[in-house]
Design a protein around this nucleic acid. Structure first.
Length: 501
RNA sequence: GGCGCAUUCGUCUAGUGGCCUAGGACGCCGCCCUCUCACGGCGGUGGCAGGGGUUCAAAUCCCCUAUGCGCUACCA
């Protein structure tokens, strides 16, 4: 029974012949939902040694922008998802932007018109809107009534002479069912009677989504259509269209949605939602790819950490789940911290250097007597969850300590603070060698002398030199700050305490 | 309204009729480690949407209900 339509499909042939496309509409940044779709398609293509194609679906002239095309491309590149055919790399099935493919659509429409599988419709948008309104008022589904389906040449001449514009519609059966064989959703059956003869070419001559996508998928030899499941209800139309054009069908895989915490489709309302935003918040590509891969796919329910290479090796569409999933920033952050921790220090340093160019630290590390990013990485690597954390953790090395409210009040309330700071300033000034080891042993000794636990002893010092309650290890921090700066900050804090009485 | 998809711990998920006293991960809680914060280690909390069937046996199969979402455009 399920073998019934097998010969209509072309998916599943030799792996190397696999062709997958990612087809975003350039109407904004690359959203994480789009990024996941791209990732799955890319992983699938790479795992089958096939081709990954980028196609820009810019037929919505009102919403498409060139900036958006550039942003999407830059996000894909940042994620490491490269394409074999598409903008910037070419390919022999191009062009890869739909607005540059008008001739191809016109020809396809002409062929359909010629064979009688499509026809011109002269109904105006106003008439159609009215019909839709009527149907709704009557509580009935709106299906185009086929008024123009059987016009004679004479009728057409008359309508044209009357100045009527026309669209091209596909002639569809109004009986029977169309079955979408979906790798993720299984076989889904649609009644042809509710489809209606839909529009292929608008009166402007620009193709509609369903037409452009079908013509392009066929023309580009796409074997696997991997996209969001909001497209599932459109798929029977595309199947019927492909069949009308005499094309074989690609395999379909409709991915479930990504939701926000409130279970509605994930969007900017939920905070960061685009790849660009996550990038600028200091997330690394390894974490985003790994996290996105797991949002809807799992290998065994046990393994959670995958390198890109492992993903390519293990990924399969069959193990993509069919339920929508909620995007969880906490888990992404945890994963991001994991990747930051496991990165080798030169690599981390170079990522941080790029990242801080857009922050208050821009241009500061490594200048004058300031520590470089490389100097600082060992102190903060295991504390960072995002690259942005580097800034919070190390800013006080580059600017005079500004006291956080909480830190200041703790310092003021700490009865031991004056004694601790005086002691520390003194012993640190008289140290022969200002090294981590020397600092540690002398400060431990001081803590003992004052009969304070080390933590209790170090906290006033921490706050005095950094203005914060959280810093990298204190001994390392003091060494990095240098004797002079350390002591002067301690002295300044002592004054501060006196004056605040 | 019609059509479609979906429903396992708070979240991501494993589970394809007996191995489930439902497993893992994030989060959360507790303990340990500890100079703060993280990290790490150990332990814990917590779930099959509801109702009917089928079966010796159901998270797993069928039906109904509920809820959420999508599509229903000369948007994609």
């Amino acid at each position: 029974m399920s073998e019934m339509n097998t010969n209509k499909y072309k998916g599943g042939e030799e792996p190397g012949a696999t062709r997958v496309r990612f087809a975003p509409s350039p109407t904004g940044h690359l959203h994480v939902g789009g990024a996941r779709t791209a990732l799955y398609g890319w992983l699938f293509a790479r795992s089958r040694k096939g081709s990954f194609i980028l196609r820009i679906e810019d037929t919505d002239r009102h919403r498409s922008t060139e900036e958006s095309v550039e942003q999407i491309i830059s996000s894909l590149q940042w994620l490491g998802l490269d394409w074999d055919e598409g903008p910037g790399v070419g390919g022999d099935r191009g062009p890869y932007r739909q607005m540059e493919r008008m001739e191809i659509y016109k020809e396809a429409a002409a062929a359909l018109l010629e064979s009688g599988k499509a026809y011109r419709c002269y109904c105006s948008p106003e008439e159609l809107d009215a019909a839709r309104a009527n149907a709704k008022a009557a509580g009935k589904p709106f299906v185009y009534n086929g008024r123009c389906a059987n016009l004679t040449a004479v009728d057409e001449e008359k309508l044209k002479a009357g100045g009527r514009g026309s669209v091209v519609r596909l002639r569809l059966p109004d009986t029977g069912v169309t079955i979408v064989r979906d790798i993720i959703k299984g076989d889904v059956e649609f009644d042809n009677s509710i489809l209606g003869d839909f529009i292929l070419l608008r009166s402007s001559g620009i193709p509609t989504y369903n037409f452009a996508v079908s013509v392009d998928d066929a023309h580009m030899g796409v074997t696997h259509v991997i996209r969001g499941d909001d497209h599932l209800p459109n798929t029977p139309r595309q199947i019927l269209l492909l069949e009308a054009m005499g094309e074989k069908l690609p395999a379909y895989a409709h991915l479930p949605l990504i939701l926000g915490p409130d279970k509605t489709p994930f969007s900017k309302r939920h905070g960061a939602s685009s790849v660009e935003e996550f990038r600028s918040q200091g997330y690394v590509r390894e974490a985003l790819c790994n996290y996105l891969a797991l949002l809807g796919w799992s290998l065994d329910g046990e393994t959670t950490l995958f390198s890109v290479e492992e993903l390519i090796e293990k990924f399969s569409l069959e193990r993509v789940g069919s339920t929508a999933s909620v995007f969880d920033n906490e888990k992404l952050s945890w994963m991001n911290g994991h990747y930051i921790r496991s990165m080798d220090s030169e690599e981390l340093a170079s990522r941080i250097e790029q990242f801080i160019e857009n922050t208050v630290l821009a241009g500061l590390p490594g200048t004058d007597d300031k520590p470089s990013v490389t100097d600082l990485v060992p102190l903060v690597q295991e504390k960072m969850k995002t690259l942005a954390d580097f800034v919070d953790l190390t800013e006080f090395f580059f600017h005079p300590a500004t006291f956080e409210e909480k830190a200041l009040s703790r310092l003021v309330k700490d009865a031991n603070a004056p004694a601790v700071l005086a002691n520390a300033a003194e012993v640190l000034s008289s140290l022969d060698v200002f090294s981590v080891e020397a600092i540690e042993s002398t400060l431990r000794q001081s803590a003992d002398d004052l009969e304070l636990k080390l933590g209790k002893f170090l906290q006033p010092i921490r706050i005095s030199v950094s203005g914060k309650t959280i810093t990298p290890g204190m001994f390392e921090t003091l060494e990095m700050l240098g004797r002079e700066e350390s002591v002067s900050r301690l002295l300044a804090a002592i004054d501060l305490l006196k004056n605040s009485g």
